[in-house]
Write a protein that binds this DNA or RNA. Sequence first.
DNA 1: ACATCTAATATTGTCATACAAACTTGGGGT
DNA 2: ACCCCAAGTTTGTATGACAATATTAGATGT
Lengths: 236, 236
Amino acid sequence: MEYEDLRIVDTPSLVRDHAISKLRNAISSGLYPPGARLVERELCEALGVSRTSVREALRQLQSENLVEVGRRRSINVAVITAQDAADIYMIREMLETQAIRRFVALSDEAERKALAAVHKRLVKALSKNDMPQLSAIASEFYERVLIGAKSRVIYEVARPLLARVNYLRIRSMAEPGRLDGGLKEWDAMMDAVQAGDADRAAEAMAVHLRNARAAIVARLEADEKTAIPAKRKAAS
Amino acid sequence: MEYEDLRIVDTPSLVRDHAISKLRNAISSGLYPPGARLVERELCEALGVSRTSVREALRQLQSENLVEVGRRRSINVAVITAQDAADIYMIREMLETQAIRRFVALSDEAERKALAAVHKRLVKALSKNDMPQLSAIASEFYERVLIGAKSRVIYEVARPLLARVNYLRIRSMAEPGRLDGGLKEWDAMMDAVQAGDADRAAEAMAVHLRNARAAIVARLEADEKTAIPAKRKAAS
DNA sequence: ACATCTAATATTGTCATACAAACTTGGGGT
DNA sequence: ACCCCAAGTTTGTATGACAATATTAGATGT
């Protein structure tokens, strides 16, 4: 008898993964603000792990472009300019309209059901103005679309962008504003997906991303005008 | 007096970077064939560096998707399927047509001159059927286009794909075939760039990538039919 | 000879240390 | 004030260690 298929996939939770998600959260939430220098030894203490693990985590964040190396080899939280954000959303529009088309064409029943469930949670969080939840759920929504598109490559290329999108979203949501707009856009997307209409779904995604882009770019441009600090340190 | 601008940017050549490019070459060239398991200790000996550095290099290659982790945590050379290749080229078409448009619009005189020079070297290598050179020069061509597009984000997203493209190209070029076709396509691209015609440049890039994609996908599909070995080891 | 279980060996993930080279900083000294 | 050097930091790399798994090679029974 073969129990292989039944066995729970063992994921002995690596220290490194834990460190990565802690750091990602710290950056997204603004604990380490844009431009802040990340010193290995300090992160070791903060995370309670060895330098080995911290360094591996930093390399991962580097490949996600959440941190960048300064001229002096220092690691700093990435500064995302309005131009960067505009480009990120332009590229997402290319990739994710394609992804949602494939989702409509290739996803199975379970995946569509799961996406609908996420959408439902999204609506609820939106109605409660529960920002932190909202951001997490939105990320899950995009990720499920990418997974359902069933293309390893699309996933690999688009997914790393979501880390920065999350980071941007949390910043742009600090201010209220375009939350209601987002609701209708998501409804339209979900509606098209459930109707199996790839064209409409892609268009809804495009509209959604263009609006989100406009909102975030406007926010960043406003920020850039007000403050151009020379150096920033991490929050104590 | 300020000499800052004159000083050569010191790049104390990290061991890690050396290891990364060695490994990339070893994979591209087929020394470590698709699916081969990469054992840290062996790489240490082969490269003459410590495990610390090997591990950092492997993580970098992992973020470039040149290697992948097996279920048992082993690191294996990525197996790129025909489907993967098709997707890679589809995404490149999206990104690099956009990139070359921006190149036409935003590059300065020096960048265009440099691109033309690369094109010239490309033509020469092509006429000599100098495959290894050809591949290196083609990579440089794409990279210059990405840099001249002056978008950090486009560069960050598109550039990692080039590692795998290089790997694919070397494989597909093992056979002769579509080299002459490539020549005309590159000429057309260069021509449009020098004429400052973004639309034509983008179209030439699109045609080029679609043809390259067809050639490579055909090659991989043929390979996949002939051989499906269970395990592969590195070449001794 | 063949399948199977077991003990020996390898491999990975993580930590702790060490040290050189490069960088930063805090004080003198002028 | 300004300049320069010594001391302390920080990063990159190497080495060694060890637990937890994997894998392999043997030993064993049929």
